[in-house]
Design a protein around this nucleic acid. Structure first.
Lengths: 164, 164
DNA sequence: CTAAATGCAAAGGCTTTGCAAGTTC
DNA sequence: GAACTTGCAAAGCCTTTGCATTTAG
């Protein structure tokens, strides 16, 4: 039955978030908590750790426990919706998987993380693995850098970057 | 039997290990435990975690506590003698820093780690950072691969690899 | 209604630390 | 002898889990 004929499911019924839709596609049972966490993650533009997700979820609606956040991010990871990252510091950070394949450049001064993709690197990675006798099934690349004084070479190039 | 007058220090007095020498250079106080741990690390050809180091040290001379191993690897790391790695799995692994700049390819089936270096990649990493407006100060590259059936392309190339 | 999700608190790994006793320089 | 190192056990993080209760489908 089409429930969208409802006169006003106003403030209690925000539209499904991007990640909520992915959950539904995969047939995951959607509870209030999961919807909430999905929303927090959908809106995140950074790489939150579990604490971050928990805090943001609480701020929206204080009906989650941290255990549920842990269980949910694990579930999402197992379903390929999130990717777990480890930038050091002991805690795992999460990154929506549908942002596409990308790597990270960490600004060592500010701690900011910049995402970028680079086709040339992808090709090289495959080649390096192949040279060692392997098929590449995954990779992890992190660059640590410091802002250069002069203007960067005009980024007309092959890399597409997005700061976060 | 005390110190016999012997031409050279025999079985009770092994020559200082590579890492022990580095410690001395840096003016670190050398205790029996540190010498032992230094030796274990000098002889390691892999990427041992603290447990590994502890076990190997115990096997040589059961006079270390795990707390000391933790304290020592941290000290060595702070002194640039070891590098801490994180290949996932929750525990830190250690890698002598003087092996030169290299990366890792993890065989996803066996868990074995292969070290390799690649000049082309080094150059590309610098270029990618530069393109984003940064000077490269560090990097981390890990490839995950699966052994290819056919023979690898003859490795006449630019990469030098060493299995561990 | 049934299988699955949640909360809570307890427990589990890895790592660090306070303190007394032992060593190095 | 002063300062540092070690051992031991306790404590700290982050994360997982057992169990009773609630909830989605």
């Amino acid at each position: 039955m089409e429930s969208r004929i409802r006169p006003r499911a106003a403030n209690t019924d925000p539209p499904p978030s991007r990640i909520e839709r992915l959950c539904i596609e995969r047939g995951l049972k959607m509870t209030g908590q999961r919807r909430l966490i999905a929303r927090v993650l959908s809106e995140a533009e950074d790489h939150p750790d579990v604490e971050d997700v928990y805090r943001r979820a609480l701020a929206l609606d204080s009906k989650v426990s941290i255990a549920t956040v842990y269980r949910t991010v694990r579930l999402l990871e197992e379903n390929g919706i999130l990717e777990r990252r480890d930038f050091g510091g002991g805690r795992a950070r999460y990154d929506p998987a549908d942002r596409g394949h990308h790597h990270h450049l960490i600004d060592v001064d500010s701690g900011k993380v910049i995402e970028f993709a680079d086709e040339e690197f992808e090709a090289l990675a495959r080649a390096m693995a192949r040279r060692l006798g392997f098929d590449l099934v995954g990779q992890r690349l992190e660059l640590f850098g410091r802002k250069v004084e002069a203007e960067p070479t005009r980024s007309g190039g092959r890399s597409k970057a997005r700061s976060s």
